[in-house]
Amino acid sequence: MNIYAIRAIYKFEMARTFRTIAQSIISPVVSTSLYFVVFGSAIGSRMNDVDGISYGAFLVPGLIMLSILTESISNASFGIYFPRFIGTIYEILSAPVSPLEIVIGYVGAAASKSLMIGSIILATAALFVPLQILHPFTMLVFLVLTSITFSMFGFIIGIWADSFEKLQIIPLLIITPLTFLGGSFYSINMLPEVWQTITLFNPVVYLVSGFRWSFYEISDVDIITSLLMTGLFLFICSVFLYWIFKTGYRLKK
């Protein structure tokens, strides 16, 4: 293991995060706070409880997941796309670094940042709504798994993209709809039956549901199923990454 390389990449990426602290940390916090104010307090006060939980509190896990997904993808995709775009990637490619070390460095940094943002939002949420976390360990597992998985997904997008438009198109066209339709703002039980079935093809449902279970023990799908699906997604991303490095896809000519 080239530990120095992992550390160098990780440090470099984290430095970028702290250099752009306003846009990387403050902005997600501000936008989620707005969600709490609008949906949690203003609209939420007129909404019925969901499965015995106040709407504001019900929203918290979903909103955290929403931020983690978007942040992981955008950070990891940008992290690897940018050196490709400006050409500095040559250095990583010519260095004695294994694909695994590269992934640990980039994905690790993106996932760390997501975790930081997730924690800050959680803390912010506690200011607005009464929170309880029944299974803190499970919560952490979901948080970490999701951060890593979607950072890997973002990393893949960052390698696939050959323009800034493409970098943004997948998050915009696929991830945003999936997260909004993934039960962040409602319980799946509230949907008509057909839609409940269709929704089960949305991977985000499992993440949000499992994550919410760790807070309140309420879920749309079984917690074990949620964990397995999250694991499956991680596995799929890993296989993809393995293939990318094996073939040199878009990294080497």
């Binding site: 080239n2 120095y4 390389a5 160098a8 440090k11 470099f12 430095a15 500095t88 250095e91 260095a95």
Partner: peptide, 18 residues
């Protein structure tokens, strides 16, 4: 890297080469 300092990029290069 536009936004890094000279020292930071040198440190990065040395690091990735182990």
């Amino acid at each position: 890297d536009a936004f890094e300092t000279v020292t930071a990029t040198f440190a990065f290069s040395r690091g990735v080469f182990g």
